[in-house]
Simulated scan of single mutants.
Amino acid sequence: MVELRLLGTKCNIGCQYCYQNPLRDSGNGNSTYDLDKVFGMLTNTGEPFVLWGGEPLLMNIDDLEKVFKFGFDRFGQNSLLTNGILITDKHVDLFKKYNVHVGVSIDGPGELNDVRWAGTLEKTRLYTQRSNDNLIRLLNTGIPTGLNFQITKCNSSEHRLPKMFEWLTTLDQLGLKNARIHVLEVDYAEGLKNHAFDTEENLQAFREYKKFEKQLKNLKFDLFENMRSLLLATDQPQDCVWSACDAYTTAAVSGIDGQGRKNNCGNTDKEGINFQKPDQQGYERYLALYNVPDEYGGCKNCRFFLQCKGQCPGTAKDGDWRNKSENCKLFKGLFEEIEQEILTEGLTPISLHPDRQLWETKLLNNLSQGINPTLHSLINN
């Protein structure tokens, strides 16, 4: 995936959990762009892109159309991730004209979205209403639309889940098909700890979403679909967090900034440095994790290693990419639950397959040679 970050980290709100905050704090969130340089790099890359932020709709509308026209002429479509606040009639016209798939980031209606702070409570609620209204507008207009949201105490505590589920039910009835749910990343933001669940609370909340999904007609949460497909090795999920990512090359995600420079996935910029992308990738993290015991931050003897691989280095314990994800216990609990569901269907998840260790050895041999196979190809070739 190519993230096109023309405005760097420039945004119209100040989400307390934004993973780009270290870049902003360090002054490395460049917000100028040269479209000729950008189009040259995109031509060389030859891949479809997602217009990313910060908030990309802060762009001049004429320049925005140039970007969408470029994407449509070469790839037949465009993709955009936005908080939805700034969408106007002109934007909607562009979305229709240039086949733009829109992802909207909002954590819920009203007070459920308060962690996406806009400076004052009044302004935060006003922006939340605009974002929600525009999300509904996109669905009613038939524009391909997805949803991204974080699981927080603000939207997923016991007394707020009913309102969250009511909102999601409405979106489901309007035809929303895909939602990506995220674990709240606290990192170094002490204030966020008031909004973040502990591991057991997170596991309970995610289980509630998993049960709730069965009541919906159209909407699916990609996390649970990804985990099931990994346990069955039926295909490779598009979500890169399961794909043995090298934190210094992030092969699954390339960023292109406003000056046409290639850099890495923003989720690995924990030091506030937007590292440039090197040519060679390494998988030392995964070779080490496989052999390091749990108490030292590793994955030794975990039957879900093939699926998880320690998950995203951007969420590694203690901010050290060499460790496994700080969300290990959450994902392990969800894998265990989905594993049991697969067993009741009369199928064998690869986590319990007699050839699992042979496949693990095969994966490690590939990684040691700089080859990162999909799980599906690893098992079927």
Rank of each mutant, 00 (worst) to 15 (best):
S105V: 11
G84H: 12
M59S: 03
K90Y: 13
F39A: 03
Y98G: 03
H101C: 10
V104H: 05
I87F: 04
G76W: 14
D89Q: 11
N44T: 08
I87A: 06
V92W: 14
V100G: 02
L57K: 01
W52I: 00
V38K: 00
N78M: 12
G110N: 15
G40N: 14
N60R: 10
N83W: 13
I106H: 03
F95V: 07
T43R: 13
L86W: 09
K96T: 05
F68R: 01
L51N: 00
V92R: 07
L42D: 00
I87Y: 12
N60A: 05
L80P: 00
G71H: 06
V100I: 15
S105G: 06
G53L: 04
V92T: 15
K66S: 10
I106T: 12
I87D: 05
T45Q: 08
V38Y: 01
H91L: 13
L64M: 13
G108M: 04
F70S: 04
K97F: 10
D63E: 12
E55D: 12
E111M: 10
Y98V: 05
I61A: 08
L57P: 00
T82M: 08
N78P: 06
F70W: 15
V102I: 11
G54Q: 01
G46N: 03
E55H: 09
I106A: 06
G110H: 10
G110K: 09
F95C: 05
H101I: 07
E55F: 11
K96N: 12
D73E: 15
G110V: 04
N78H: 13
V100F: 08
Y98P: 02
T82V: 12
K90H: 14
F72S: 10
E111W: 10
E111N: 13
M41N: 00
H101R: 14
L64I: 08
F39G: 01
V102E: 07
L86V: 11
F95K: 01
F72T: 04
I87P: 02
I106Y: 07
E111Y: 14
G71I: 05
L42Y: 01
G103H: 08
K37T: 00
P48T: 05
F75G: 06
L51V: 02
D62S: 06
S79R: 14
M41Q: 14
V100M: 09
G108R: 00
G54E: 06
W52L: 05
F95M: 06
H91Y: 14
I61K: 13
V67W: 12
S105D: 12
N83D: 14
G103F: 10
L64C: 07
T82R: 06
L64P: 02
G40T: 11
L94N: 03
K37Y: 04
L57M: 13
I85W: 14
G110S: 13
T43S: 11
E65R: 11
